Computed example of a mutant assay.
Amino acid sequence: MKFHWAKYAQRLSDEGFKIMEALLLINDPQVDGTTITYELPNQGSKIDFDAEKGKLVSYLRGHLQNHKITIDVIVNEQMAVRKAYTDQDRYNRLHEINPDIELLKNTFGLYF
């Protein structure tokens, strides 16, 4: 699920929807059965996210082949936003999303 979440964020970035991409990458969604819980740092972010949530749900339902998926959004104003500033931070973030990136790194001898 996290892989498709990140892939959808990249798709939004490619289409120029940088705000929604940033909202999707603020933190990791939590999955409990068919319910995805996602925390956002403020009410304004929640409003922007809710406006596009239907498209995200449709995308995930199609790619995960599960039409019972729902997304619950929680506003947590105490939330610390995780940002990746260095190449190593970006690599670590990608590794959290898809651990198979380690194989890619080792296969091509990439270093950060």
Rank of each mutant, 00 (worst) to 15 (best):
Asn92Thr: 06
Pro29Leu: 13
Arg11Tyr: 06
Thr35Met: 11
Val57Ile: 15
Leu56Asp: 01
Thr70Met: 01
Pro29Asn: 10
Glu77Met: 13
Glu52Lys: 03
Leu40Thr: 04
Met1Gln: 15
Asp48Met: 10
Thr34Glu: 14
Asp48Gln: 10
Asp89His: 09
Ile26Pro: 01
Ile26Leu: 07
Tyr91Ser: 02
Met1Ile: 15
Glu77Asn: 14
His67Val: 03
Met20Ala: 01
Pro41Ala: 04
Glu39Leu: 08
Gly109Lys: 11
Val81Phe: 03
Val57Leu: 01
Thr86Lys: 07
Leu56Thr: 02
Ala6Val: 02
Arg61Ile: 01
Arg93His: 09
Phe17Gln: 09
Asn27Lys: 04
Val81Ala: 05
Ala84Arg: 06
Lys53Asp: 03
Glu21Val: 00
Phe108Tyr: 15
Gln10Tyr: 03
Asn42Gln: 07
Ile101His: 09
Asp14Arg: 09
Leu64Cys: 13
Leu23Glu: 02
Tyr111Arg: 12
Tyr111Lys: 15
Thr37Ala: 06
Leu56Lys: 06
Glu77Val: 13
Gln78Ser: 13
Leu64Gln: 15
Asp50Tyr: 04
Gly16Glu: 07
Tyr8Ala: 00
Arg93Tyr: 09
Thr37Lys: 06
Pro41Val: 03
Asp32Met: 08
Gln43Glu: 14
Thr70Val: 02
Tyr91Gly: 02
Pro41Glu: 02
Val73Arg: 07
Ile47Ser: 08
Gly62Pro: 03
Pro29Tyr: 07
Lys2Val: 12
Gly62Phe: 05
Leu64Val: 14
Ile47Gly: 04
Ile101Arg: 11
Leu110Gly: 12
Val81Pro: 02
Arg82His: 06
Phe49Glu: 04
Arg61Glu: 02
Asn76Lys: 10
Gly109Gln: 13
Gln65Lys: 15
Ile97Ser: 12
Pro99His: 13
Val81Tyr: 09
Thr70Gly: 02
Gly54Arg: 03
Lys7Thr: 01
Phe112Lys: 10
Glu21Met: 00
Pro41Asp: 06
Ala51Thr: 07
Ala51Asn: 08
Ile26Gly: 00
Glu77Pro: 11
Pro41Leu: 07
Ala80Asp: 06
Lys46Pro: 09
Lys7Gly: 01
Lys18Asp: 08
Ala6His: 04
Ile47Glu: 03
Leu25Phe: 00
Ala84Lys: 00
Leu56Ser: 00
Lys83Glu: 07
Phe17Tyr: 08
Asp87Ala: 11
Val31Lys: 15
Lys2Ile: 14
Ile26Ser: 02
Phe17Arg: 01
Gln65Arg: 15
Asp72Arg: 10
Tyr8Ser: 01
Thr70Ile: 01
Glu96Pro: 05
Glu77Ile: 13
Asn42Tyr: 12
Glu21Tyr: 00
Tyr59Phe: 09
Gln78Cys: 04
Asp50Arg: 01
Gln30Glu: 15
Ala9Leu: 03
Gly54Trp: 00
Phe49Met: 07
Ile71His: 08
